[in-house]
Design a protein around this nucleic acid. Sequence first.
DNA 1: CTTATAAGTGAAAAACATTTTCAATTAAGT
DNA 2: ACTTAATTGAAAATGTTTTTCACTTATAAG
Lengths: 143, 143
Amino acid sequence: MRPSAKKIASLLSQKGHKLTAQRRAVIDVVVNSREHLAPAALYERVRRAHPAIGLVTVYRTLEMLHELGLICRVHRGGKSRTYTLAPSGHHHHLVCTECGIVADFTDCDLEVLQQRLSQETGFKIEGHLLQFVGHCRNCQGGT
Amino acid sequence: MRPSAKKIASLLSQKGHKLTAQRRAVIDVVVNSREHLAPAALYERVRRAHPAIGLVTVYRTLEMLHELGLICRVHRGGKSRTYTLAPSGHHHHLVCTECGIVADFTDCDLEVLQQRLSQETGFKIEGHLLQFVGHCRNCQGGT
DNA sequence: CTTATAAGTGAAAAACATTTTCAATTAAGT
DNA sequence: ACTTAATTGAAAATGTTTTTCACTTATAAG
Ligand SMILES: [Zn+2]
Ligand SMILES: [Zn+2]
Ligand SMILES: [Zn+2]
Ligand SMILES: [Zn+2]
Protein backbone atom coordinates (compact mmCIF):
# COMPACT_ATOMS: atom_id res chain seq x y z
CA MET A 1 0.00 0.00 0.00
CA ARG A 2 1.39 3.38 -0.96
CA PRO A 3 2.22 5.70 1.92
CA SER A 4 -0.10 8.67 2.42
CA ALA A 5 0.97 12.29 2.32
CA LYS A 6 0.21 12.45 6.02
CA LYS A 7 2.50 9.54 6.76
CA ILE A 8 5.36 11.04 4.80
CA ALA A 9 4.92 14.42 6.39
CA SER A 10 5.03 12.87 9.81
CA LEU A 11 8.20 10.95 9.03
CA LEU A 12 9.78 14.18 7.87
CA SER A 13 8.84 15.83 11.09
CA GLN A 14 10.15 12.93 13.15
CA LYS A 15 13.53 13.34 11.52
CA GLY A 16 13.69 16.90 12.78
CA HIS A 17 12.66 18.68 9.62
CA LYS A 18 10.15 21.48 9.60
CA LEU A 19 6.78 20.93 8.05
CA THR A 20 6.34 23.87 5.73
CA ALA A 21 3.50 24.55 3.34
CA GLN A 22 5.93 24.13 0.45
CA ARG A 23 7.02 20.70 1.57
CA ARG A 24 3.44 19.60 2.04
CA ALA A 25 2.66 20.77 -1.46
CA VAL A 26 5.55 18.82 -2.97
CA ILE A 27 4.63 15.71 -1.00
CA ASP A 28 1.02 15.96 -2.17
CA VAL A 29 2.01 16.04 -5.78
CA VAL A 30 4.43 13.16 -5.41
CA VAL A 31 1.88 11.03 -3.61
CA ASN A 32 -0.76 11.73 -6.20
CA SER A 33 1.38 11.03 -9.24
CA ARG A 34 1.93 7.58 -10.61
CA GLU A 35 4.70 8.56 -12.99
CA HIS A 36 8.33 9.32 -12.42
CA LEU A 37 8.63 13.07 -12.69
CA ALA A 38 11.51 15.45 -13.28
CA PRO A 39 11.92 18.35 -10.86
CA ALA A 40 10.74 20.82 -13.49
CA ALA A 41 7.57 18.84 -14.17
CA LEU A 42 6.89 18.47 -10.48
CA TYR A 43 7.46 22.17 -10.07
CA GLU A 44 4.74 22.92 -12.63
CA ARG A 45 2.27 20.71 -10.83
CA VAL A 46 3.14 22.01 -7.40
CA ARG A 47 2.63 25.58 -8.57
CA ARG A 48 -1.00 24.87 -9.32
CA ALA A 49 -1.58 24.42 -5.59
CA HIS A 50 1.13 26.74 -4.35
CA PRO A 51 1.96 29.40 -6.98
CA ALA A 52 4.66 31.14 -5.00
CA ILE A 53 6.94 28.15 -4.53
CA GLY A 54 10.43 28.28 -6.02
CA LEU A 55 12.02 25.62 -8.19
CA VAL A 56 14.94 25.48 -5.77
CA THR A 57 12.67 24.41 -2.97
CA VAL A 58 11.29 21.62 -5.12
CA TYR A 59 14.82 20.41 -5.78
CA ARG A 60 15.68 20.59 -2.11
CA THR A 61 12.55 18.82 -0.97
CA LEU A 62 12.94 16.03 -3.48
CA GLU A 63 16.54 15.43 -2.47
CA MET A 64 15.50 15.38 1.14
CA LEU A 65 12.73 12.86 0.57
CA HIS A 66 15.15 10.80 -1.41
CA GLU A 67 17.74 10.81 1.33
CA LEU A 68 15.14 9.62 3.78
CA GLY A 69 14.33 6.79 1.39
CA LEU A 70 10.77 7.97 0.91
CA ILE A 71 10.98 8.55 -2.80
CA CYS A 72 13.10 6.95 -5.45
CA ARG A 73 15.35 8.76 -7.88
CA VAL A 74 16.21 7.66 -11.39
CA HIS A 75 19.06 9.04 -13.42
CA ARG A 76 18.47 9.04 -17.14
CA GLY A 77 21.85 9.63 -18.75
CA GLY A 78 21.93 13.14 -20.13
CA LYS A 79 18.32 14.00 -19.39
CA SER A 80 17.12 15.28 -16.07
CA ARG A 81 16.59 12.89 -13.20
CA THR A 82 13.15 11.83 -12.10
CA TYR A 83 11.55 11.02 -8.79
CA THR A 84 8.60 8.95 -7.76
CA LEU A 85 7.02 7.62 -4.61
CA ALA A 86 9.12 4.63 -3.55
CA PRO A 87 7.28 1.33 -3.86
CA SER A 88 8.06 -0.76 -0.82
CA GLY A 89 11.70 -1.70 -0.89
CA HIS A 90 14.31 -2.54 -3.44
CA HIS A 91 13.29 -2.26 -7.08
CA HIS A 92 14.48 -1.52 -10.56
CA HIS A 93 13.37 0.18 -13.73
CA LEU A 94 12.45 -0.39 -17.29
CA VAL A 95 12.73 2.84 -19.21
CA CYS A 96 11.26 3.71 -22.60
CA THR A 97 13.86 5.61 -24.60
CA GLU A 98 11.16 7.18 -26.73
CA CYS A 99 8.68 8.70 -24.30
CA GLY A 100 10.58 8.28 -21.04
CA ILE A 101 7.90 6.28 -19.25
CA VAL A 102 9.25 4.11 -16.44
CA ALA A 103 7.97 0.74 -15.25
CA ASP A 104 9.12 -0.82 -12.00
CA PHE A 105 10.04 -4.38 -11.19
CA THR A 106 11.30 -5.86 -7.99
CA ASP A 107 13.26 -9.07 -8.49
CA CYS A 108 16.84 -9.10 -9.62
CA ASP A 109 18.77 -12.03 -8.15
CA LEU A 110 22.16 -10.44 -8.34
CA GLU A 111 23.56 -11.72 -5.05
CA VAL A 112 25.67 -14.52 -6.52
CA LEU A 113 27.21 -12.28 -9.16
CA GLN A 114 27.76 -9.57 -6.57
CA GLN A 115 29.55 -11.96 -4.26
CA ARG A 116 31.86 -13.17 -6.96
CA LEU A 117 32.70 -9.68 -8.22
CA SER A 118 33.44 -8.58 -4.72
CA GLN A 119 35.98 -11.35 -4.34
CA GLU A 120 37.56 -10.85 -7.72
CA THR A 121 37.97 -7.09 -7.53
CA GLY A 122 38.32 -6.35 -3.84
CA PHE A 123 35.45 -3.86 -4.06
CA LYS A 124 33.11 -3.59 -1.13
CA ILE A 125 29.87 -3.54 -3.07
CA GLU A 126 27.18 -1.38 -1.56
CA GLY A 127 24.49 -1.42 -4.16
CA HIS A 128 23.62 -1.96 -7.73
CA LEU A 129 21.88 -0.26 -10.55
CA LEU A 130 19.91 -2.44 -12.90
CA GLN A 131 17.83 -0.94 -15.61
CA PHE A 132 16.41 -2.19 -18.84
CA VAL A 133 15.87 0.14 -21.74
CA GLY A 134 13.65 -0.31 -24.74
CA HIS A 135 10.40 0.81 -26.20
CA CYS A 136 7.10 0.68 -24.37
CA ARG A 137 3.97 -0.71 -25.94
CA ASN A 138 2.90 2.72 -27.17
CA CYS A 139 6.20 3.60 -28.75
CA GLN A 140 6.83 0.49 -30.82
CA GLY A 141 5.19 1.71 -34.02
CA GLY A 142 7.29 3.47 -36.68
CA THR A 143 10.70 5.19 -36.45
CA MET B 1 43.35 -7.73 -27.89
CA ARG B 2 42.68 -4.01 -27.81
CA PRO B 3 42.30 -2.33 -31.19
CA SER B 4 45.15 -0.07 -32.25
CA ALA B 5 44.84 3.61 -33.04
CA LYS B 6 45.59 2.76 -36.63
CA LYS B 7 42.76 0.26 -36.77
CA ILE B 8 40.26 2.72 -35.32
CA ALA B 9 41.37 5.49 -37.64
CA SER B 10 40.94 3.23 -40.61
CA LEU B 11 37.45 2.20 -39.53
CA LEU B 12 36.55 5.85 -39.21
CA SER B 13 37.80 6.51 -42.68
CA GLN B 14 35.92 3.52 -44.09
CA LYS B 15 32.71 4.97 -42.75
CA GLY B 16 33.26 8.09 -44.79
CA HIS B 17 34.64 10.35 -42.08
CA LYS B 18 37.67 12.51 -42.62
CA LEU B 19 40.85 11.66 -40.82
CA THR B 20 41.88 14.92 -39.23
CA ALA B 21 44.82 15.56 -36.94
CA GLN B 22 42.33 16.30 -34.13
CA ARG B 23 40.60 12.98 -34.48
CA ARG B 24 43.89 11.13 -34.55
CA ALA B 25 44.92 12.90 -31.37
CA VAL B 26 41.69 11.96 -29.58
CA ILE B 27 41.97 8.37 -30.74
CA ASP B 28 45.56 8.16 -29.53
CA VAL B 29 44.62 9.28 -26.06
CA VAL B 30 41.67 6.91 -25.85
CA VAL B 31 43.73 3.97 -27.02
CA ASN B 32 46.49 4.72 -24.56
CA SER B 33 44.26 5.20 -21.52
CA ARG B 34 43.08 2.34 -19.41
CA GLU B 35 40.57 4.37 -17.42
CA HIS B 36 37.15 5.66 -18.27
CA LEU B 37 37.60 9.35 -18.93
CA ALA B 38 35.26 12.32 -19.03
CA PRO B 39 35.41 14.61 -22.07
CA ALA B 40 37.08 17.33 -20.03
CA ALA B 41 39.79 14.98 -18.78
CA LEU B 42 40.37 13.64 -22.25
CA TYR B 43 40.55 17.18 -23.53
CA GLU B 44 43.36 17.96 -21.10
CA ARG B 45 45.32 14.95 -22.24
CA VAL B 46 44.73 15.57 -25.91
CA ARG B 47 45.94 19.13 -25.55
CA ARG B 48 49.36 17.93 -24.52
CA ALA B 49 49.82 16.52 -28.03
CA HIS B 50 47.62 18.97 -29.86
CA PRO B 51 47.35 22.27 -27.95
CA ALA B 52 45.04 23.99 -30.39
CA ILE B 53 42.20 21.48 -30.24
CA GLY B 54 38.82 22.64 -28.99
CA LEU B 55 36.73 20.92 -26.34
CA VAL B 56 33.84 20.78 -28.79
CA THR B 57 35.85 18.66 -31.15
CA VAL B 58 36.65 16.25 -28.37
CA TYR B 59 32.94 15.93 -27.59
CA ARG B 60 32.12 15.41 -31.23
CA THR B 61 34.83 12.86 -31.82
CA LEU B 62 33.91 10.86 -28.74
CA GLU B 63 30.25 10.76 -29.74
CA MET B 64 31.25 9.66 -33.19
CA LEU B 65 33.47 6.86 -31.95
CA HIS B 66 30.69 5.82 -29.63
CA GLU B 67 28.14 5.71 -32.41
CA LEU B 68 30.45 3.49 -34.42
CA GLY B 69 30.66 1.19 -31.41
CA LEU B 70 34.40 1.73 -31.05
CA ILE B 71 34.33 3.18 -27.57
CA CYS B 72 31.96 2.69 -24.71
CA ARG B 73 30.12 5.43 -22.89
CA VAL B 74 29.12 5.37 -19.25
CA HIS B 75 26.61 7.70 -17.68
CA ARG B 76 27.26 8.44 -14.06
CA GLY B 77 24.07 9.97 -12.67
CA GLY B 78 24.63 13.67 -12.23
CA LYS B 79 28.34 13.67 -13.00
CA SER B 80 29.73 13.89 -16.50
CA ARG B 81 29.74 10.84 -18.69
CA THR B 82 32.91 8.91 -19.40
CA TYR B 83 34.30 7.06 -22.36
CA THR B 84 36.77 4.27 -22.75
CA LEU B 85 38.02 1.97 -25.44
CA ALA B 86 35.39 -0.73 -25.82
CA PRO B 87 36.58 -4.08 -24.55
CA SER B 88 35.38 -6.73 -26.93
CA GLY B 89 31.62 -6.88 -26.67
CA HIS B 90 29.03 -6.50 -23.98
CA HIS B 91 30.21 -5.56 -20.51
CA HIS B 92 29.28 -3.82 -17.30
CA HIS B 93 30.78 -1.69 -14.60
CA LEU B 94 31.67 -1.58 -11.00
CA VAL B 95 32.08 2.01 -9.87
CA CYS B 96 33.79 3.33 -6.76
CA THR B 97 31.67 6.13 -5.32
CA GLU B 98 34.67 7.59 -3.57
CA CYS B 99 37.34 7.96 -6.24
CA GLY B 100 35.32 7.17 -9.35
CA ILE B 101 37.49 4.31 -10.57
CA VAL B 102 35.66 1.87 -12.81
CA ALA B 103 36.21 -1.89 -13.15
CA ASP B 104 34.68 -3.89 -15.96
CA PHE B 105 33.06 -7.29 -15.93
CA THR B 106 31.45 -9.19 -18.71
CA ASP B 107 28.93 -11.73 -17.51
CA CYS B 108 25.45 -10.82 -16.45
CA ASP B 109 22.92 -13.57 -17.25
CA LEU B 110 19.91 -11.35 -17.51
CA GLU B 111 18.23 -13.05 -20.44
CA VAL B 112 15.64 -14.95 -18.40
CA LEU B 113 14.64 -11.90 -16.42
CA GLN B 114 14.57 -9.81 -19.57
CA GLN B 115 12.30 -12.27 -21.32
CA ARG B 116 9.86 -12.33 -18.47
CA LEU B 117 9.74 -8.56 -18.10
CA SER B 118 9.18 -8.18 -21.77
CA GLN B 119 6.12 -10.41 -21.57
CA GLU B 120 4.75 -8.82 -18.43
CA THR B 121 5.10 -5.23 -19.52
CA GLY B 122 4.84 -5.30 -23.29
CA PHE B 123 8.14 -3.47 -23.57
CA LYS B 124 10.43 -4.35 -26.42
CA ILE B 125 13.66 -4.48 -24.46
CA GLU B 126 16.70 -3.31 -26.37
CA GLY B 127 19.38 -3.23 -23.75
CA HIS B 128 20.20 -3.10 -20.13
CA LEU B 129 22.29 -1.17 -17.74
CA LEU B 130 23.84 -3.09 -14.91
CA GLN B 131 26.23 -1.43 -12.58
CA PHE B 132 27.48 -2.15 -9.11
CA VAL B 133 28.54 0.65 -6.84
CA GLY B 134 30.71 0.49 -3.80
CA HIS B 135 34.17 1.26 -2.57
CA CYS B 136 37.32 0.04 -4.25
CA ARG B 137 40.18 -1.53 -2.32
CA ASN B 138 41.92 1.81 -1.92
CA CYS B 139 38.90 3.67 -0.66
CA GLN B 140 37.72 1.33 2.07
CA GLY B 141 39.63 2.91 4.93
CA GLY B 142 37.94 5.59 7.08
CA THR B 143 34.86 7.71 6.37
C1' DC C 1 0.36 33.90 23.80
C1' DT C 2 5.06 36.02 23.05
C1' DT C 3 9.76 35.41 21.91
C1' DA C 4 14.01 33.45 20.30
C1' DT C 5 16.27 31.04 16.89
C1' DA C 6 17.59 27.64 13.89
C1' DA C 7 15.64 25.94 9.79
C1' DG C 8 13.73 27.01 5.49
C1' DT C 9 12.68 29.93 1.43
C1' DG C 10 13.35 31.95 -3.17
C1' DA C 11 15.46 35.22 -6.52
C1' DA C 12 19.41 35.60 -8.65
C1' DA C 13 23.83 34.17 -9.78
C1' DA C 14 27.10 30.57 -10.29
C1' DA C 15 28.54 26.24 -11.73
C1' DC C 16 28.61 22.58 -14.85
C1' DA C 17 27.99 19.71 -18.82
C1' DT C 18 26.59 19.61 -23.32
C1' DT C 19 24.81 21.47 -27.78
C1' DT C 20 24.23 24.82 -31.37
C1' DT C 21 25.82 28.34 -34.52
C1' DC C 22 28.55 29.96 -38.03
C1' DA C 23 32.51 31.81 -40.44
C1' DA C 24 36.88 30.03 -41.54
C1' DT C 25 39.72 25.92 -42.53
C1' DT C 26 40.99 21.56 -44.57
C1' DA C 27 40.95 16.47 -46.12
C1' DA C 28 40.28 13.95 -49.94
C1' DG C 29 38.69 13.00 -54.50
C1' DT C 30 39.07 14.67 -59.43
C1' DA D 1 46.17 22.33 -58.25
C1' DC D 2 41.03 22.73 -57.71
C1' DT D 3 36.66 21.91 -55.71
C1' DT D 4 33.66 21.02 -52.21
C1' DA D 5 31.54 18.94 -48.54
C1' DA D 6 33.10 17.81 -44.06
C1' DT D 7 35.26 19.65 -40.07
C1' DT D 8 36.85 22.89 -36.78
C1' DG D 9 36.66 26.04 -32.73
C1' DA D 10 35.22 30.35 -30.42
C1' DA D 11 31.42 31.98 -28.61
C1' DA D 12 26.79 31.79 -27.43
C1' DA D 13 22.88 29.08 -26.13
C1' DT D 14 20.76 25.50 -23.48
C1' DG D 15 19.50 22.94 -19.66
C1' DT D 16 20.06 21.16 -15.21
C1' DT D 17 21.52 21.49 -10.61
C1' DT D 18 23.89 24.05 -6.84
C1' DT D 19 25.22 28.00 -4.17
C1' DT D 20 24.48 32.40 -1.96
C1' DC D 21 22.34 35.36 1.02
C1' DA D 22 18.89 38.43 2.91
C1' DC D 23 14.41 37.54 4.41
C1' DT D 24 10.67 34.60 6.46
C1' DT D 25 8.68 31.15 9.45
C1' DA D 26 7.86 26.72 12.08
C1' DT D 27 8.64 25.21 16.39
C1' DA D 28 9.72 24.99 21.03
C1' DA D 29 10.71 27.38 25.37
C1' DG D 30 9.10 30.63 28.67
ZN1 LIG E 1 7.38 4.94 -24.71
ZN1 LIG F 1 17.94 -5.19 -7.48
ZN1 LIG G 1 37.88 4.25 -4.89
ZN1 LIG H 1 25.02 -7.34 -19.46
